[in-house]
Write a protein that binds this DNA or RNA. Structure first.
Lengths: 133, 133, 133, 133
DNA sequence: GTGGTCTAGACCACT
DNA sequence: GTGGTCTAGACCACC
């Protein structure tokens, strides 16, 4: 459910954050649901509890999850809204990257093709449709 | 000619590498030309010579520049080819990023728009046209 | 375990690289094992930590070791494969050297003898036999 | 007659030394003959005269050539003997290299094959036969 | 003057 | 504790 690459350059605590946020966006961790406990993740991922704790602390700071001392951490009801807003900021990084590619002589069509191919992939990595209430 | 943000998260030596590679692609540092010396950059950027040295060492390792001890560092004649080849690998990173954005619910059109807007920018950051010989 | 000659022409950081690669090939540093830390080597060899760091950075770049910040540097599981592949490239250098010796009038038999005598030396510097699984 | 690679790691002055010694061993510069002047080499190779001068100084120190102020530098009559003796010392480096290859798992036969193939190459890089007096 | 190596000591983020 | 980055200042070989 949560894949960690200990040899990656990206810090482990950040990988955990990204993984949890991803799972929330995909609906694997529904809004309001209970997350695995620090100890549980610690043993299932083979990672120091302090590292997990650091990830949870950061997610709490961002308002994505909210700890309920004694019972665990719950996904905030506005987690998705927060994450989507955050994602829009990533568009800036995308522009940077595209700019680099342009300077390197990559054609616009090649980029557009790469983008399109991502959006035509299977549904496993697409957020579930919003349900009418 | 080379902008460094000392407060950025990205290491200074990496910013220097990126800046030089960018200038080569833009033709500001022509193939075969002499780069500013380690000490020269050191004073003009206000950065320790060792940090510049580290950047030059990495560029040398990549084959982008070639040092000629006693006379300076020259831009390799195949630098552009190397950098363009390297850039194509960055397309993978772009796909990752786009994938994250998709999961976060960003629409395809929004991404395509961002890409297009980069390619419609002014010409200052476009590599010069290849001239027929 | 790691012998450094500070008076050698060969840079210290390169001697460290060679020594570690040698120890990996000999099985003294098994695949997946934890290497001595930068500071540890620094004191045991009487060498500045930055110099050790430079060696580790290069080994990392080659994919021979992989650092896990906070816990140490580990020998990659494909380190031996990498090093053996690299060694085959050294055969080119050997040919160069032999060519020089030939020009200098050294007889082929003399060279063949030198090679043979290396392969008849004791077993301490021979990689351990592959064990059938 | 003398090939210099300005981008090589090996210092230019050393490349010149090696090239001249090689030409002496091959008989291209016969014993007792007059070498090209510093200025002549300087322009034909496009290299700073100081660098050529340094090479000649080192060759003089080794006794391979002897300068005759006003008329140029001559190949010593015992140059070949000197160089052959020097070459025998290179056998030590060969043993080192072979030792490394052995540790990396290269088989003895592969090395012997590489050596043999050098000695079966064409005659252009073989010293001319000794003539009976 | 040039690039390359080394030392010393500091700071940071991560585990 | 760990690796990674940066600074400061020195020395060397090379051109």
């Amino acid at each position: 459910m949560l894949l960690i690459d200990k040899l990656s350059q990206k810090p482990i605590y950040e990988q955990i954050i990204d993984g949890i946020e991803r799972n929330i966006l995909l609906g694997i961790y529904p809004l309001g649901s209970l997350l695995p406990s620090v100890r549980e993740l610690s043993v299932s991922l083979g990672i120091n509890p302090n590292t997990i704790q650091k990830s949870y602390a950061e997610l709490t700071r961002r308002g994505v999850i909210s700890p309920s001392p004694g019972s665990g951490c719950y996904v905030s009801y506005d987690a998705k809204a927060l994450l989507s807003a955050e994602a829009r900021k990533k568009l800036a990084r995308l522009s940077e990257l595209v700019s680099e590619l342009r300077i390197a002589g990559i054609e616009e069509n090649e980029i557009l093709g790469a983008v399109a191919s991502v959006y035509q992939k299977d549904e496993t990595s697409r957020p579930e449709k919003e349900v009418k209430k």
